[in-house]
Design a protein around this nucleic acid. Structure first.
Lengths: 164, 164
DNA sequence: TATATAAATGTAATATTATAACGTTACAAT
DNA sequence: ATTGTAACGTTATAATATTACATTTATATA
């Protein structure tokens, strides 16, 4: 039932150009469908986030964005991030104050984020079963669940091999 | 198997004075056992954190601490927090940048934090089963798990009744 | 008990992350 | 064309967290 989402990215080198192209096209259609605007700024920031699978901070993102738009201010990044998160195209990793692109934004999903503490690559794992069980547990004690943050730190397969 | 930890606190009013006293005594013995020093500052900060079950921010804590120690600086709080977290007496809630006292620090535990978005009270739920299943899932894809952050936002029973 | 060592704290400065407030521009629905 | 809303520009500042280095306190043991 649960399964790895962006498994190509976890299995070593993948065609990242194709991965990005697909992500951005998918983003276009999601926004179109939702009737929200993926403006030039928002699209560019999504592109920067998705340019790797590493978690990236807002100010790091600002530095990259400024290569094209030297006068850009932090709030521009945060506004775009707010939008992208709202639409589900980006996730915030709370334990890092950093952001990753969502590779499966089209599917409604309940995921855990797996973060490699060595290379900072972050992956999403479909964890519906875990969500269901935690939601059930919380309801048993009359807690009404709304949203779940689940972040698993550790080492990806590549880095754990390297560090042996 | 999984169960609510500080269930008295979730079930409405409880004897908070007794709760605190017990938490602090327990903290003393944990530190003694580990051979680490629960200094006056550290004990006081733990006491402030545990003075309610609401998540509290570092600077809020600083304000409280300054009632006694007007010259205290942020780093004093952060140092104490680092210590208390290291020892397991306090947890950081990543999604709030805030802290709560741990009511069951003596037991090795794998917990989810339940956060009421209305009253900010936070509870710990033993979620060993969920940890195990997520760890197993991650290992299947050759990810080596180290630590898991699990934070469930929602409404506690009291607040969900009130908001009806 | 003196003293060496490590741990804890004091103090100042600064880095990092994020938001508020308010004006202007662009879009898109009538 | 007008008008209302969403997006963006600009400035300032709030909120969170760390670094660096000096000083004091506790602990072990000579």
């Amino acid at each position: 039932m649960d399964e790895l989402i962006n498994n190509t990215a976890t299995q070593g080198p993948h065609n990242h150009q194709a991965c990005m192209t697909q992500t951005l096209q998918s983003a276009e259609s999601i926004c179109a469908e939702k009737g929200v605007r993926l403006t030039v700024i928002r699209r560019r920031i999504l592109e920067l986030i998705c340019s790797s699978h590493k978690a990236i901070g807002a100010y790091e993102l600002l530095d990259l964005f400024r290569l094209d738009e030297p006068k850009a201010k932090p709030v521009t990044i945060y506004r775009a991030l707010d939008f992208l998160i709202e639409v589900g195209l980006v996730h915030k990793i709370e334990s890092l104050n950093a952001f990753i692109g969502c590779l499966q934004a089209e599917t409604k999903h309940q995921t855990a984020i797996l973060i490699c503490d060595e290379c900072k690559n972050a992956y999403e794992l479909d964890a519906s079963s875990v969500y269901q069980s935690l939601f059930a547990m919380s309801k048993e004690i009359q807690f009404t669940p709304a949203s779940l943050t689940m972040e698993l730190h550790g080492l990806c397969s590549t880095c754990s091999k390297t560090l042996k």
